[in-house]
Amino acid sequence: MMEKMIFGRYIPVESVIHRMDPRAKLIIVFLFIFVVFLANNPMTYGLLGVFTFIALLLSNIKISFIIKGLRFLFWLILFTFLLHIFFTKEGELLVSWGFIKIYEGGLIQGIYISLRFFFLILFTSLLTLTTTPIEITDGLESLLNPLKKLKFPVHELALMLSIALRFIPTLMDETEKIMKAQQARGVDFSEGSLTTRAKAIIPLLIPLFINAFKRADELATAMEARGYRGGEGRTKYRLLKWDLRDTLALLILIALSVTLILLRN
């Protein structure tokens, strides 16, 4: 099931968007969340749509693939759409069928909100589809750097995140291994009542935790042996490079916002 979900997954292909500085991408996605709310008429929504669509095209990722991967989110969009249709009672009455009454205002509102949602999802998943988790971490660390002055543990947070990312596959493998070992000892993870199933989790969770602690301990020792003494005086190997294209992308987003402000009612 995990394989079919693409939300939050990195797709390694070549594209301008992939090559962009993660900081630029993070800033743009963050700003986009507000920009989306500027649209309020067909013209502005159209413009947003064109913008999103072009970004998707530039990312070199098959659109059909994205649509397929985000299928489960469409149910959420559909749900909000229906919610608005049924509960907004503005404008002309379009359909009246028993207790279901659809008004023009509701229909328009439903379409707009759904579009907003749709664009947002597409745009944010574009970030994770084109940026490795570690790049996102680096970008965040760099953007949050000023907070260090306020004693916010930016380096520690970034290190924690990157170690977590590195160990996710290892722990997934381990979970599967322990699960199989306990199944071989007669545990059934998929049958029985809810309480039996909950109980079956214990022989899985305890070894998993104990091993994770052991790993953490050994990892800390290994880090210490390689001279880790906290963030003070550390240099950085991973390099973030802000290019012309990043400035351009940011300018385009600003241009879009200005146009949207001008075109909205």
Binding site: K177, I178, A181, A184, R185, D188, P203, P207
Partner: peptide, 29 residues
């Protein structure tokens, strides 16, 4: 399940599957 009773598997590094408070409980599991 009846098969798993008849065919026991000792996986690599089987000590990773221990979880009970006492040795006795773990073996009885």
């Amino acid at each position: 399940k009846s098969i798993r009773k008849k065919v026991g598997i000792v996986f690599q590094f089987p000590e990773h599957q221990l979880f009970e408070e006492t040795v006795e409980k773990d073996i009885c599991f």
